[in-house]
Simulated assay, not measured.
Amino acid sequence: MRQFFKWFLSVVLVVTGLVSNAQTGSISSKKTLRVLLIGNSFSQNASTFLPQIAKDDGNNIVFGHAELPGCPLQRHWQLAELNSAEPENPKGKPYEGDKSLRMLLSDSEWDVITMQQYSMLSGNLNTYKPYAQQLYALIRQYQPKARILLHQTWAYRSDSKSFGEVDNGKLAQTEKEMYEKSRAAYHLMARELNLNIIPTGDAFWLIGSNPKTSFKKDESFDPLKAVYPALPHEQNSLHAGYSWSNGKLNFDSHHANDAGKYLGGLVWYAVLFNKPVTQMKFKPQSVSDEFAAQLKAAATAAVKGGKQ
């Protein structure tokens, strides 16, 4: 009789909880996360598919954009200083809606604010200081409750014609060196500012360094002799690579393609919502089911090992 009573009480509590939750909407309600991106084209790349991934899991993302092409931390800070010194100068209001960073920070209450270094400078620790600290202080001034994250950008594709800076006047010689130097710089800044990292760069490297999933250059393709619409075999590339535009062959070893953007979105979602991504149904049509599964595994592994 006592066991039956315990069982009956547990059922009552569960049903009561379900009814209560249904009345408050907590079961079916969608969580909306407001995210301000302080960055450049790499933050745009990494967040491209984030709204679809969130929607697939019943959540919603609202973005604010403090992003400029190729913009390093130094320039973001200098633009903020210009706006402080000359509030009416339009040059200090370069972001969406002709706004300054201070305006974006004060206009809304942000749940998450991210910042990152320009990829070409990501491996040179000297380029982070003191601008990361200054931007952090500015963010905290206007958004004391926001979760601030560093977005660890990725290294360029292995066949890139050049790689990012690792010291003043010195460039990395390989994808591996660029990854290692930039990772070290991001993690040092994260420790100094007591921040967590969105480890997109780690996820890219997990794919690129694994012989089973890595991109391999098509040695049979000669870009100097290529005739439209010929393109190389670029299986497993996370970067844009080769494309034709107006009869001209273009090569982009820096920015992400759909697979890279998807990988970035998975990493971001796992960090922002603290949820697994292995069962996510959404994927870009251009990404195969097999590769999507490998990208989910890489994102999961990167996030598990990427926190400070």
Rank of each mutant, 00 (worst) to 15 (best):
G306F: 10
Q78H: 08
E175T: 08
G39T: 00
A240F: 03
P69M: 09
L224A: 10
V14P: 08
S10W: 10
F49H: 05
A137Y: 04
K225W: 06
A226N: 10
Y142P: 02
I197V: 15
M178C: 04
A22L: 14
Q308V: 09
G70F: 11
V166P: 01
Q285K: 15
K261H: 01
Y262F: 08
K248F: 03
T213D: 14
K129P: 04
S288Q: 11
L9F: 08
Q44N: 10
E180P: 07
Y156I: 01
A298F: 00
V12Q: 06
N246A: 06
W154D: 00
A203V: 05
N196P: 07
S43Q: 11
K6Y: 14
V271L: 12
L231C: 14
V12M: 08
H187T: 09
K176M: 07
A297G: 05
Q52M: 11
V287N: 03
D98Q: 15
K248Y: 03
V267S: 06
L104T: 00
T24D: 15
A240K: 07
W110L: 05
K307L: 13
S286G: 08
Q116F: 11
S119N: 06
M189V: 14
K225F: 05
A297F: 03
K129S: 12
Q141T: 12
S20A: 15
S162T: 13
I53G: 00
F221I: 11
T16V: 12
P211A: 15
F63L: 13
T153I: 14
Q116D: 13
M115P: 02
K216N: 10
K216A: 10
A298R: 00
G58S: 09
I61M: 04
E219Q: 12
T24H: 14
H151Q: 15
A66L: 11
M103Y: 11
L125F: 08
Q143I: 05
N89D: 13
L266A: 02
R2P: 04
G164T: 00
F63E: 11
A226T: 07
S100F: 07
S122A: 15
G247T: 10
G260M: 01
K170G: 07
F204V: 12
S43L: 11
V11L: 09
K145G: 08
